[in-house]
C-alpha cells in the first residue's frame, strides 16, 4: 500500500475541517449559554431575548453542518468506495 499522503485533496481537506467545526460547535454553544450567568443580574427580559436569539442561531449552524456532513455520507454510502485519501480517518 502507498504511504498515507501528507496533504489531502481539497475536498477531503474541507470535509475534515467540517468535522472539526462540528466538534467545536457545542463548545461555542456552552460558552454562549454560560454568558447570562457571567453577566450577573440584569434585566430578565434582555436575557430572554439573548437566549432565544442565540439558541436558533446555534440550531441553524448545526443544521448547516449536519447537511454538509450527513449529505457527504449518504452520497458516499451507495458507492461504498468513499473518497480516496480519506480512508485513514482521524
Amino acid at each position: 500500500m502507498a504511504p498515507r499522503a501528507l496533504f489531502l485533496a481539497r475536498r477531503s481537506y474541507r470535509l475534515r475541517r467540517l468535522r472539526d467545526a462540528a466538534l467545536m460547535l457545542p463548545l461555542l454553544g456552552g460558552f454562549l449559554f454560560l454568558l447570562p450567568v457571567l453577566r450577573g443580574s440584569g434585566d430578565l427580559a434582555d436575557e430572554v431575548v439573548y437566549l432565544f436569539v442565540v439558541w436558533p442561531l446555534l440550531i441553524l449552524a448545526a443544521f448547516v453542518l449536519s447537511r454538509l456532513l450527513g449529505g457527504r455520507r449518504s452520497e458516499a454510502e451507495p458507492g461504498s468506495g468513499g473518497e480516496p485519501g480519506e480512508g485513514g480517518g482521524r
Binding site: 462540528a22 457545542p26 454553544g29 456552552g30 449559554f33 439558541w55 440550531i59 448545526a62 449536519s66 456532513l69
Partner: peptide, 11 residues
C-alpha cells in the same frame, strides 16, 4: 439547553 448542546455536538 443541555440536550441542545449534546445534540449539536453529536459528532
Amino acid at each position: 439547553l443541555g440536550p441542545t448542546l449534546v445534540f449539536i455536538g453529536w459528532w
